[in-house]
Amino acid sequence: MSLQVTFLGTSGAVPTTDRNPSGLFVRREGDAMLFDAGEGTQRQMMRFGTGFDVRWVFLSHLHGDHVLGIPGLLQTMDFNERSDPLTIFTPQGTGRSIRNLIYAIGPEPSYGVDVVEVGPGETVVDAGAYDVRTFATEHRTRSVGYALVEADRKGRFDRERAEELGVPVGPKFSALHEGEPVELEDGTVIEPNQVVGPPRPGRTVVYTGDTRPVDSVVEAASGADLLIHDATFAESSDERARETGHSTAREAGEVADRADVERLVLTHISSRYAGDTGILKAEAEAAFDGRVLVARDGDDVDVPYSEKR
Rank of each mutant, 00 (worst) to 15 (best):
G93D: 10
T87F: 09
N80L: 15
V67G: 00
G95F: 03
Q75Y: 14
S97F: 15
L68H: 11
T76L: 13
G72F: 06
G72H: 04
I70S: 03
T87Q: 07
L86D: 04
N80C: 06
R82N: 03
L101P: 01
R82H: 07
R82G: 05
T87C: 08
E81D: 14
N100P: 00
D65R: 01
F79I: 00
S97M: 14
G69D: 01
F79V: 00
S83G: 09
L73W: 11
P85I: 03
T90Y: 05
P85E: 08
E81H: 13
S83C: 05
I102V: 15
R82D: 04
V67L: 08
I88W: 10
G72C: 05
T87Y: 11
I70T: 03
I70P: 04
L73A: 01
G93C: 01
N100A: 10
P71V: 14
P71Y: 12
L73T: 02
R96W: 02
S97C: 03
G72N: 07
R96V: 11
G93E: 06
G69E: 04
S83A: 15
Q75F: 14
L86P: 09
P91A: 08
I70K: 00
L74C: 02
D65Q: 09
P71C: 14
G93P: 02
I102D: 06
S83E: 15
I70C: 05
D84F: 00
M77V: 05
E81G: 01
L74M: 07
E81K: 14
I98Y: 04
P71E: 14
S83P: 02
N80G: 05
E81R: 15
D78W: 02
Q92V: 08
P85D: 09
S97H: 14
G69C: 05
T90G: 04
G93I: 07
I102L: 14
H66D: 13
N100I: 01
M77E: 04
G72L: 07
T76A: 12
L68P: 00
G95W: 04
Q75V: 08
D78Y: 01
G95Q: 11
F79W: 12
S83I: 10
E81I: 01
F89A: 11
